[in-house]
């Protein structure tokens, strides 16, 4: 049994973690020990490999007091302050509000919410088209990207439709987040901030902080360049496709019952082969 430490809302992080929210859960796994660990709620978790401190974060603009290197440094210092050897920080990026303990534990495990819905995915096959992707804010460059990705994606195997849809949605969302149509900073400053954010995340990871969720949201947005997508943003979107898969797997029970078509039973297959060789 491991313990998940969830600091109270601070510096734009864990905004859900207020007394009324915890009280609403009424779950015996949740406890407080203000003498030992002030401002932290503890959750007992059976399937976490070790204790960890969870910081749920949204987009970078919500985290920084100001879009400057000083503002970024202040946020990084807050993360480092929560990071200890006994309970390293896991930064879970979630652009949706945390509304349940199930969701919280999913994020703490490095997974995305909502989880992969097998029944919903099974309602489609490769014969279904990948639907158009929405682009909030209506950025022209992001719109062009979204249209192009839907036009180019192929679904190669029948059960993979949802994978194509998730991939297209994850990549498009990443581009939309990254391309700022209403910038607070000039292009050069925004570029410098994005690079500084990337460096800061790399340093946090080097210190042992782990990350999950659409972490590109922690990079300052930049404007499109004359209708083109910045190279690093295009690479972020491609990487986000793979991260989205890794963080939305299905935990198949190893002892699950399998339905094997009769013709694929080993004895039947052997018989077929023997017949074929006559």
């Amino acid at each position: 049994m491991s313990v998940l430490r969830v600091p109270d809302a601070v510096a734009g992080m864990n905004t859900f973690a207020v007394p009324t929210w915890w009280a609403s859960l009424e779950d015996e796994r949740v406890s407080r020990d203000d003498d030992e660990l002030p401002d932290v709620t503890l959750v007992e978790v059976a399937d976490l490999p070790a204790d960890r401190t969870l910081l749920v974060v949204g987009a970078v603009a919500e985290l920084l007091s100001e879009p400057t290197p000083a503002g970024l440094a202040a946020w990084v210092a807050e993360v480092r302050a929560a990071h200890t050897a006994s309970a390293p920080v896991h930064l879970a990026v979630s652009l949706d509000e945390v509304t349940s303990l199930d969701q919280l534990l999913t994020l703490a495990a490095g997974r995305r919410w909502p989880r992969f819905d097998v029944a919903s995915a099974a309602a489609h096959t490769d014969a279904d088209p990948v639907p158009p992707q929405s682009v909030p804010g209506g950025q022209g460059t992001a719109r062009a990207y979204a249209d192009a990705i839907v036009a180019q994606v192929e679904v190669l195997l029948p059960p993979a439709w949802q994978t194509a849809v998730d991939g297209a949605a994850d990549a498009t969302a990443c581009i939309s987040r990254a391309l700022d149509t209403d910038p607070d900073l000039g292009p050069a400053e925004a570029r410098a901030m994005r690079d500084a954010c990337r460096t800061a995340l790399e340093q946090l990871e080097a210190d042992g902080v782990t990350l999950s969720g659409p972490r590109d949201a922690l990079l300052w947005p930049v404007p499109a360049e004359r209708g083109l997508v910045p190279i690093d943003v295009a690479a972020d979107a491609a990487i986000e496709v793979m991260l989205g898969q890794v963080e939305r797997p299905v935990d198949l029970a190893p002892d699950r019952a399998l339905v094997v078509p009769v013709e694929e039973l080993p004895a039947r297959a052997l018989l077929t082969r023997l017949r074929g060789s006559r």
């Binding site: 490769d126 192009a148 180019q152 195997l157 059960p159 194509a164 297209a168 990549a171 295009a234 979107a237």
Partner: peptide
């Protein structure tokens, strides 16, 4: 030096990964 790329090419990069993902066989 180039710092940005046509959206269709950027999309092709991700679409190549996605299409390859959809080819992962559901073997037992």
């Amino acid at each position: 030096p180039v710092t940005a790329i046509d959206p269709a090419a950027a999309a092709a990069l991700a679409a190549g990964i996605i299409s390859k993902l959809t080819g992962v066989h559901p073997r037992p």
